[in-house]
Every structure is written in structure tokens, then in C-alpha cells.
């Protein structure tokens, strides 16, 4: 085991996959000299050469389109789109090509590629550099969507994404790049579609992913002070999501809160809540709740930006609100 940052874990993971499989290569802007916007490619061009770590022009359509072409012809590209906001510049190639080429062509080919997009708010990056677009990708048939929240998960899930034969959208949070955690450098891929029960609890289930995980755990700590036991599930894979883990948890607690940084309206939380309500309505003791961003672009000024954040306080308040007034009373034994 060792402690490393989220960026370093991602770098190590890609390095190991490139060592393992000569068909794996990466393309995108600024990968070589500086090693990517967060150092997540540092040293890889020096090691693997400029063909396998390809520095591209600012040509998102072609970065993505050519990756699809290369994926259906025997290679396994890792596409770096820098910020999820520029994923929109490549949305046509992602949605109309990568996601459905296997299907449209009657299963003749697969498009095994990874589409890395760093998401989320960080220190005043404003409206065109702070977006979380996960729900859009989940909505597109053909795509797998992964959003790791820790260095170890980034390490294991990037490996899994690279080995996956489906196109995978891999969402890395800007705010997490510099955070560190325990990683087993020898660890293999983690299974796609398996959530992690981060903290067991009895009174309510909190489902979250990516950087909101940290806030969820803070909320759980705060709630524990008042005797409320929150179970925290890190979904990790948004599509296909781990129904078994989420359903089992909600069956146990009877209460569901979903927290995510992306916009609440039409967000992925809505899908989770709907599925839970539809599947296990009788098991619910309270209406499921979503804690997420307001439907506004992300503003620049700090006090305004903070209005769009999901805080630990907001999560804790949502949990308190769905519990009966006196936690020591009716809650006991439930």
C-alpha cells in the first residue's frame, strides 16, 4: 500500500495498462510536456513515446472521432477531453458514433475506448469550466459511465474502463486531483457496476459519488454526533449502477437521500429515486430526497459559486428532515 493522489493514481493506472497491453494509447491536448492539466499523464510520453501518448491539436471533434475509428480497428484509445465542458465539442462523436456504432452495425464491431473528462467546480472556474455532465452520458444507450471518488477507485476503475469493450465515459473531479488516499499499486481492476458501502448505518441511506463523497462522510460524522446513523454508499459506476447494493441498503434503512454536485433537475439522482420508489415503495419510511445543485450555470464570484455547491450541512439537514422529530424515540429498533 502507499499513499498517493488521485492524479497520481490515475497516472499509475494508465501506465500499468499501457505496459500490459500495447494496443492501449492515449490522445489529447497537452499530455506530453506537462503531463496533462493535473499531471495525470506525467512522464508517460517520455516512457511510451509520442505515438502512444499523442499530443493533439485543439481538435475535439477529431480527437473523439478518430478515437472511435481507431477503436473499431484494433486499438484501445484513452481519450483525454481535458474538461467535461469540452466534451460538448465532441458530443456528436460520443453520442452518434462511439455509443451506437456496435449496435448500428449489427454487432460487427465494438468501440473499446475511454473518454476521460474532468468535471466539477473548483475555485472559480466559472460557467464553461465547472460543469458536471454525467446525466447526459447516462442517458445515452451504449455508454458506460464511471465517476470515481477516491485515488484507489480511480486506480482500479480506470484499469477496468480500459479493459472494457464498451465505450466508457470516465469522469474525474477537478477538486479531487490533489487529494490523497491509500492505493495498492499492485491492485488490479475493480469491477464496473459495483458500489462501495463506505460507511454502514441504520437510519438512512445516502447514495453519492465523486467529490460529494467527502461531504457525505462529513455529514455522516455530524449526524453521528446527534445519534443518527447514516449509511453512505459510493456508487462509483453510474451506468450500470449497483442496484443490489442500493436496494439492500434502502431496504435496511427505509430512507434514501441522493447527493450529487450536478444540477438536481434531470440529474442522475432522479433516476435512482424513481427506481427505488418504483421497486420498493412499501419499504420506504419517508419520501426519498435529492440534494444537488440548483438549475443555474456555475457563477464566478465565490459567494455565488458557493450557492451552487452541495455542502455537508445541506446533506445533514436533508437527512434530519426525513427522520421523525425525536431520533431516540420512534427510531429505536427500526
Amino acid at each position: 500500500m502507499g499513499v498517493m493522489t488521485y492524479a497520481e493514481a490515475a497516472r499509475l493506472s494508465l501506465e500499468q495498462e499501457m505496459d500490459r497491453d500495447p494496443r492501449v494509447w492515449a490522445l489529447g491536448e497537452d499530455l506530453g510536456p506537462e503531463g496533462g492539466v493535473a499531471g495525470q499523464y506525467r512522464g508517460l510520453q517520455q516512457k511510451f513515446g509520442p505515438e502512444r501518448i499523442l499530443d493533439t491539436p485543439i481538435s475535439e471533434s477529431m480527437i473523439m472521432g478518430s478515437a472511435v475509428g481507431a477503436a473499431i480497428c484494433g486499438t484501445r484509445p484513452v481519450v483525454e477531453l481535458r474538461y467535461a465542458d469540452f466534451g460538448f465539442c465532441a458530443a456528436d462523436e460520443i453520442v452518434n458514433q462511439a455509443a451506437k456504432i456496435r449496435y448500428m452495425l449489427g454487432g460487427q464491431v465494438r468501440a473499446p475506448l475511454v473518454i476521460r473528462q474532468s468535471v466539477g467546480m473548483r475555485n472559480g472556474m466559472a460557467a464553461q469550466h465547472s460543469q458536471n455532465n454525467e446525466a447526459l452520458w447516462v442517458h445515452v444507450p451504449g455508454l458506460v459511465v464511471i465517476a470515481p471518488g477516491t485515488p484507489a477507485d480511480t486506480h482500479g476503475l480506470l484499469k477496468a474502463a480500459i479493459r472494457c469493450d464498451d465505450p466508457v465515459v470516465f469522469l474525474e473531479h477537478k477538486e479531487l486531483w490533489a487529494t490523497s488516499g491509500e492505493v495498492d499499486p499492485q491492485a488490479g481492476p475493480l469491477p464496473i457496476g459495483v458500489a462501495r458501502l463506505v460507511r454502514p448505518g441504520a437510519d438512512a441511506t445516502l447514495v453519492t459519488w465523486s467529490s460529494t463523497l467527502g461531504r457525505a462522510l462529513e455529514a455522516a460524522d455530524a449526524l453521528a454526533q446527534s445519534g443518527i446513523s447514516l449509511e453512505v454508499v459510493d456508487l462509483r459506476t453510474l451506468w450500470p449502477w449497483d442496484r443490489d447494493t442500493v436496494f439492500a441498503s434502502v431496504r435496511k434503512t427505509g430512507r434514501l437521500v441522493v447527493a450529487h454536485e450536478s444540477v438536481r433537475v434531470g440529474g442522475f439522482g432522479a433516476e435512482l429515486v424513481a427506481e427505488v420508489a418504483q421497486t420498493m415503495f412499501p419499504a420506504l419510511k419517508a419520501a426519498p430526497v435529492r440534494v444537488a445543485s440548483p438549475r443555474a450555470p456555475v457563477p464566478y464570484a465565490k459567494p455565488l459559486e458557493d450557492m451552487c455547491r452541495v455542502s455537508a450541512d445541506m446533506i445533514a439537514a436533508a437527512v434530519r428532515e426525513m427522520l421523525p422529530a425525536d431520533p431516540s424515540g420512534p427510531l429505536a429498533g427500526t
Partner: peptide
């Protein structure tokens, strides 16, 4: 003022340098 995200910024502090 925009750069510092303040009232009176050309975009009301909502855009910052890049906008």
C-alpha cells in the same frame, strides 16, 4: 471588479476573467 468577483463588475461578478 469582475476579476475580483465584485458588485459593479462588468458581468456582475458572474463571469470572471474568461467571460
Amino acid at each position: 471588479k469582475e476579476l475580483l468577483g465584485r458588485t459593479g463588475g462588468v458581468c456582475g461578478g458572474k463571469g470572471g476573467s474568461m467571460h
